[in-house]
Design a binder for these strands. Structure first.
Lengths: 291, 291
DNA sequence: AGCATTCTCTGACCTTAGTCAGAGAACCTG
DNA sequence: CAGGTTCTCTGACTAAGGTCAGAGAATGCT
């Protein structure tokens, strides 16, 4: 009996919502109804602006405002104008609020303990391993790939992370790469893609036109914590698809021979090594693939 | 950096509720509010009694009744007295109800597909594996161990499953074992424990008093689909704890030498082989442990 | 400076989800 | 067949969660 992936996902979904979702609610509902509790927990020990809370929790602004008045009335939070922009308001926990927050945190910890406590050490290790894997893959599967101009804040953040990393590894200095990339990786001949999770960039990559009319993939980067989730391969596939849509028939890229994992990935994806096609001083390997 | 099990559980919890829980609700909420949708889905293509629904979903009887009137009003279900007991009522889907049910099922399938679609084959296989493991272990961790009189319906069901299994394997015939067990495995000298998951018995075991004043564990059984989740070891520990509470200092048990996994479990739990202490014709090994 | 936009808040309103007490029919037990 | 129990239902009620329109202050843009 071979089980379909979707069957497994659905079965787990069911088990999970019934066993943990239900527990979760009963644990969080401590005197206060669920809404205010969740909000209090989300505000967290370092505080947040109303705007952020609205985005993160997806609440109506009127509803959120009312919830905040409630917490304020209980003396758990303080709301005051943001210093840099007085339209926004910052929410912070009071002393009592921090106590309440810690109680919620304890409950959440208790819930987790309730779940692992009945298991033997071996079973517990297996569960932890399975959940960590599932966590990574679920997050990877729900990453959003988005075309962004290289000048967009998230694109800049991603590219900065990329430059920082190759700076650390090879002493690379971006110089005027910022400006050059911004020009070459925009329409009509190029584009830039950022993968975001919870609004944070976790991977990126761009395509630009080479003089001979083929496409070149550049600035490909995957966040440290996201290695091993197939995100690189997925991004690569996405870039190829987008390049094909742009009318390219051949895609090339260069890389450094110390990046063995990246090279393995390119080879798995059907790239073959070719002779040097550019004068990039940092590159040691050159690859090509027909789209 | 060694991560605590509870941290992993909590992180996964967060990822899951944010990414899938939210999706789940938006997928199910198709015109109808969530409550009626869930109920419709739970009734299923084969129908159910009102009682079953109440137990499975943990709803107030008044509330459930009202939800059913709503579905009835939309022409999705029919409610009629149960044939064997006219106090109960059976709910079945109408033609339209089946259509609506199938739409819900499709949505749920779509959701699962959305989740696995972006992954590569290898990643998908890893996710399926991780979720299947997590499913088994989460279910195992949330099993309920309950003292029940051997005559209770669930106890009888569990013991019947046990007899059926050893009947298949060894040709064992219960005979008057039912009556004998029911007497010996009740207070004050004995007891019977049933592990239930969603109200279904998934494991059982009993303790009775031996002539020499030690305790004997009998009728230990774990459901096929639950092997490998550490449930047997947990049940064994539970039986020992309860026996200790009853004042026993020594516990014994017999088994058949073909049940190698059971024997391995007993040895891991600290049991040592002893000489034959009873005249059970089916037994080939005898074990003992000091409490 | 004037105008559009952003951000938060309030008031009015609605749906969903759920609780509780008690009634009435069917069943079980002695 | 009397009395207690089980099962479902109705009516009355409440809390929780959420939507919508518009007001008012602060800011950005030209």
């Amino acid at each position: 009996m071979l089980e379909e992936p979707t069957d497994v996902v659905r079965r787990f979904n069911r088990t999970y919502t019934q066993r943990i979702g239900a527990l979760d609610e009963s644990f969080l509902g401590t005197g206060r109804p669920l809404g205010p509790s969740r909000l209090l927990f989300e505000i967290g020990e370092s505080g947040a602006t109303v705007r952020e809370l609205r985005d993160r929790m997806g609440l109506d602004s009127g509803y959120l405002s009312r919830l905040l008045r409630g917490l304020e009335g209980d003396g758990l939070v303080e709301v005051r104008p943001d210093l840099t922009d007085a339209r926004r308001r910052r929410v912070t926990l009071t002393r009592r609020g921090r106590t309440a927050w810690r109680r919620l945190d304890d409950r959440s910890e208790d819930l987790a303990r309730t779940l692992v406590a009945p298991l033997s050490d071996r079973q517990r290790a297996r569960l932890v391993d399975a959940l960590a894997t599932a966590d990574l893959l679920v997050r990877a599967a729900t990453v959003r790939l988005e075309d962004l101009p290289p000048t967009d804040a998230r694109a800049v953040e991603a590219m900065a992370a990329y430059f920082a990393e190759i700076g650390r590894r090879f002493g690379f200095e971006p110089g005027d790469a910022w400006r050059v990339d911004a020009e070459s990786m925009t329409a009509p001949d190029g584009f830039f893609v950022v993968a975001t999770s919870d609004g944070e960039p976790v991977a990126c990559g761009g395509v630009q036109r080479l003089p001979d009319g083929s496409a070149q993939i550049k600035r490909m980067w995957v966040h440290d914590g996201w290695r091993g989730a197939g995100l690189g391969a997925r991004l690569l596939r996405h870039l190829e698809d987008r390049a094909r849509e742009h009318g390219y028939a051949v895609v090339r890229l260069d890389t450094n021979d110390t990046l063995t994992e990246a090279i393995a990935m390119y080879e798995r994806a059907g790239y073959r090594a070719i002779a040097r096609y550019n004068d990039n001083p940092w590159a040691r390997c050159w690859f090509e693939k027909d789209l």
